[in-house]
Design a protein around this nucleic acid. Sequence first.
DNA 1: TGCTTGACATAAT
DNA 2: CATTATGCCAAGC
Length: 113
Amino acid sequence: MASEIRTRIYDVVARIPRGRVATYGQIAELAGVGGHARQVGYALHALGGDSPLPWHRVVNAAGQVSRRDDPADEVFQRALLKAEGLRFSAAGRLDLGAVRWKPRSGRPHSSGA
DNA sequence: TGCTTGACATAAT
DNA sequence: CATTATGCCAAGC
């Protein structure tokens, strides 16, 4: 497999828990390819939607769904996120401070949420 | 082999 | 807060 980074990206995206979202840059970093945020989106685009990966949990740094070929897909993605209990702002953005996936099993040793 | 494109991110205006 | 400009690096042709 030449594009090994893409394989890693898929692996990270598959780890996004339900009710949470991750940014492209974050995924790239978790995948061990920090800096290739664009390749993350590119890899997901290559999936086409025929993949079992929760690609809909991947948004850009603005907490907004990125633009794609079909604007209908954007609505579709937001619909999937809303179905997971996520909240969208009036501008159609997510509150990353609340729904951002924190790949840390560690607890703040002082009351969690 | 080399140029262009891209489901992004960040800083500046 | 929204928009514009620049940087980054791999995939596609």
